[in-house]
Amino acid sequence: MNNKATNACHLPELKSGEISFQPGRIFWATLVRELNLALRRRSDLINPLVFFLMVATLFPLGVSPEPSVLSTLAPGVVWVAALLATLLSLDSLFRSDFDDGSLEQMLLSPQPLFVVVLGKVLAHWLLTGLPLTLMAPLLAVMLFLPAEGMWGLMLSLLLGTPTLSLIGAIGAALTVGLRKGGVLLSLLVLPLYIPVLIFGTAAVEAAVTGLPLGGFLALLGALLAAGLALSPLAIAAGLRISVSG
């Protein structure tokens, strides 16, 4: 039996000592994997965008179709709709990894978890935040946002939506272990979105009225930088708590 066993399979030698950390490789592998998964599950990709469009369409119907009214509402409406669309897509961020056990494997990997997490969040932004930003001018035109405000809207969304993904991922990590974490996720995350919303809409309004918007963009950039540095650690800790429970 013993002889047969050793003949039957060739296992690699056991490793001795150190192995190298390759954060670049794991980051890239995570990104490619997430994009691959999203491409094979296209409905999840389109849902936030359709939601974004529909929320913005409700305002002319519900408030007033008057261009003068809509143009004052436009910055806020587009921003709030983008924020809610991001929120909608967050619940699935770690859900399938949690369900099929991939998350456990990520936690047990010798590679640093925050790099994996950063790859996942970047993929999430590429698939929601970026398309939302690109779609925003369409909604802005629909809501009669003056043409001068368009660049302010695009730039503020470009800087703001990654922060939304990063902050949202903390909530997603903390609620992934709960069976119905969706509502709790919104309650956790929405208050944290307020600063981003304030500076984002302020930037658009400044652009519309012809004031300099550099200050608001700098604040959004600062929020993004802080988010990039700190939230992966919080997300990683949240995931450990969720899996441990």
Binding site: F21, R25, I26, A29, R33, D100, G101, S102, P110
Partner: peptide
């Protein structure tokens, strides 16, 4: 849970593990 992504192929799954465990 086996930690296998159902949308990926067996080879893609294992390549992902190879990225997690560089040995």
């Amino acid at each position: 849970q086996a930690g296998v992504k159902s949308l990926l192929t067996p080879e893609e799954n294992l390549r992902w593990y190879a990225a997690l465990d560089t040995s």
